[in-house]
């Protein structure tokens, strides 16, 4: 079985986001980049499947050279090799076209992604890629088992969950608790240095969206504190002042 795991390189979840160049660029100064947390779940499950079934795991990122530390970390966690499509990932459709082109070349049985990126929160790349490949997509997947060419999955739905079965190949958007996040060990870090990381140029350039400018949310006003022994006042304020109940 061949598994492709698509990963993003995104600002750490604790980052305070700011912009530069007249609000047209993310201010990367001091920002720590990490693997998307959902992508980390996808990778962790892929590595478990590799350990159970001997599957191969390839990691793919569409991004510039500064994403390589994140890719190396994925190799250290247990992926066998990696591909980086050398381009600024400025649009979901563009990213999907790159992933679909690589998938067509290599025919993977399973393409695992995160449920959504934590930078642009689109939740769409898996669906677009699957559509381009003409195969099913399922998201968000919180449990995945493979027997032969059948995948058994649990997907979260609003207010509950659903068990599903489908035949490979599939594209899945993953979330917890599909697997536990994995931390690379020393041996993993050492072997990752020599694992193959292939850099390829994009196969197309077309984009369908373009960011014009960024902006930060207006700060909230000062908090109004209510003494605990007058907690009932809160309900009055929510009704008469905030008008939300």
């Amino acid at each position: 079985m061949k598994i492709l795991v698509c990963v993003t390189s995104v600002p750490d979840t604790t980052t305070k986001i700011t912009f530069t160049d007249n609000n047209t660029k993310l201010n990367k100064a001091g920002v720590q980049f990490i693997t998307g947390p959902y992508d980390d779940y996808a990778l962790a499950r892929a590595v478990e499947l590799k350990e159970q079934t001997g599957a191969s795991v390839t990691v793919l990122n569409v991004g510039e050279a500064d994403a390589e530390p994140v890719i190396r970390k994925c190799l250290a966690i247990g992926a066998d090799d990696a591909i980086r499509v050398n381009a600024d990932p400025v649009d979901a459709y563009f990213v999907a076209e790159q992933i679909a082109a690589i998938a067509k070349e290599n025919s993977y049985d399973l393409i695992l992604m995160g449920r959504e990126s934590i930078d642009y929160n689109g939740g769409q790349v898996h669906g677009i890629v699957a559509e381009m490949l003409g195969i099913p997509s399922i998201s968000p997947v919180m449990k995945l088992d493979i027997s032969g060419t059948t995948a058994k999955m649990t997907r979260e739905i609003e207010g509950g969950k659903e068990d599903l079965e489908a035949s490979l190949p599939l594209v899945l958007g993953c979330q917890e608790p599909i697997a536990e996040w994995k931390i690379p060990n020393m041996r993993g870090i050492m072997t990752a240095r020599t694992k193959p990381l292939k850099v390829v140029e994009p196969s197309s350039r077309e984009t369908l969206t373009q960011v014009v400018s960024y902006e930060l949310p207006a700060p909230r006003g000062a908090v109004k504190m209510i003494p605990a022994d007058q907690a009932e006042t809160l309900i009055q304020l929510l009704r008469t002042e905030a008008k939300v109940i």
């Binding site: 689109g122 669906g127 559509e131 369908l208």
Partner: peptide
Amino acid sequence: KSSLADAMAARLAGKLKAGLAAN
């Protein structure tokens, strides 16, 4: 946005080659 609408919209964007803005 909803879990169903997200799944539908992504496939639709692929089918129609549409620009999809989420959120």
